[in-house]
Write a protein that binds this DNA or RNA. Structure first.
Length: 211
DNA sequence: GACCAGATGTACT
DNA sequence: GTACATCTGGTCT
């Protein structure tokens, strides 16, 4: 999962276009694996390669914040156009971030659950209390902590290089590396809790066997 | 691996 | 006012 490109080149990569996010949410979740999530704050830029994501299918999905058409100040960003960052606060101490998908009034999103460092690793590890390696961002709240993302980043446009964006650096994750399954932590959602809407890169499979 | 406390925003009564 | 949350880290087994 090492980046094939040097950091300076990573930062020049074009953000994924709006139309990438406006597609079917499950497709977006799958295609986000292997993409690079970049974060700029001041002069500092850090980046993670996404390795885990979950789809949340809006009004018909009991696990989604917008289930049943629920519309509140908190989830307003989900109701907007695809290609924006939806950040929420949970459990009284954690932030989680999502990429909004589809089009306005279709409130679906992809939860960014995990990534591995490709740039600014030391800065991210420092924010994570010195934790490095896989522990750096192998959970949605850890990912936000490593990237210093909070509610003030809610609504950020992912299609420009303003603060947070996602780019394709040419790295492609083959289907054989990907495992799918039910989403995490949504047991309250009844039948929807069992839907296979989680995509994860199995790092064990991503390392070519020794010859 | 299982268990559980932690700390507060958010939704809803 | 109350219940609960798209989780994490520490502890114990």
């Amino acid at each position: 999962m090492e980046s094939p490109l040097p950091e300076t080149t990573l930062l020049r990569l074009a953000p994924l276009p709006r139309r990438f996010y406006q597609r079917e949410t499950q497709r977006v979740a799958r295609d986000l694996l292997g993409k690079v999530l970049l974060r700029r704050s001041g002069d500092e830029i850090v980046a993670l390669r996404l390795i885990e994501a979950e789809a949340y299918l809006g009004v018909g999905d009991a696990a989604a914040h917008t289930f049943g058409g629920r519309r509140t100040p908190r989830n307003a960003t989900m109701w907007g156009d695809g290609g924006h960052l939806y950040v929420y606060f949970t459990y009284g101490m954690h932030h989680c971030c999502n990429a909004v998908t589809r089009t306005p009034e279709v409130p679906e999103a992809v939860l960014l659950r995990g990534g591995v460092a490709v740039a600014g690793r030391a800065a991210m590890a420092a924010r994570r209390g010195g934790r490095d390696g896989l522990e750096l961002a192998d959970g949605p709240a850890k990912l936000c902590q490593a990237l210093a993302i909070d509610r003030t980043d809610d609504g950020t446009d992912l299609t420009d290089r303003g603060g947070v964006w996602i780019a394709d650096d040419g790295f492609s994750v083959p289907d054989e590396w990907i495992v799918t399954g039910p989403r995490i932590g949504v047991g309250y959602a009844g039948e929807a809790a069992q839907w296979p809407l989680r995509w994860r890169v199995d790092l064990a499979r991503s390392v070519p066997p020794a010859r």
